[in-house]
């Protein structure tokens, strides 16, 4: 099939996905963008958000928390810190993480790293909203 390209999604904890797909939509740092086969070589950072991909006319969604994407005409590679398919998201864990992050921000102890707490808050919110939206 000429209208597909290879997509690899890798995280530090392993290869998450490596299959040909038709279309991909990813949250770039300067806005969301789509990639079809034959895209010009392109590279950017990703933010926390949702990656949609179209495979055999079926849509699948992943939650990612930042990383990079490298696009070539015949293949694309996503290097993500984490990437989970919607069906694999552990909602309980995400809610617990959300609560933890909230506590840390509100508790504001001197040694709390506010930036890090906010990032983990963002990650948790992202996971939860994606999981709720698509389930």
């Amino acid at each position: 099939m000429a209208n597909t390209y290879q997509l690899d999604i890798v995280t530090p904890e392993g290869l998450v996905f490596s299959e040909p797909i038709e279309h991909l939509r990813a949250p770039g740092i300067e806005g969301s963008f789509g990639v079809l086969v034959g895209h010009t070589p392109f590279m950017t950072s990703l933010t926390i958000g949702k990656v949609d991909l179209m495979q055999n006319n079926k849509q699948r969604a992943l939650a990612t928390s930042g990383g990079f994407i490298e696009v070539n005409p015949d293949r694309a590679v996503i290097l993500a810190e984490t990437a989970e398919f919607v069906e694999d998201i552990d909602l309980d864990r995400a809610e617990a993480a959300l609560q933890r992050a909230k506590d840390r921000i509100e508790g504001k102890q001197l040694d709390t790293d506010l930036n890090r707490a906010q990032v983990s808050l963002g990650r948790a919110v992202n996971r939860i909203s994606i999981a709720r939206m698509t389930r």
Partner: peptide, 20 residues
């Protein structure tokens, strides 16, 4: 020869990628 398109630019991408 391939010219890569960087968004926003190569240095910014680099400074995101190095800590990682």
């Amino acid at each position: 020869g391939i010219d890569f398109l960087y968004e926003p630019d190569a240095l910014t991408v680099l400074s995101n990628i190095l800590p990682l």
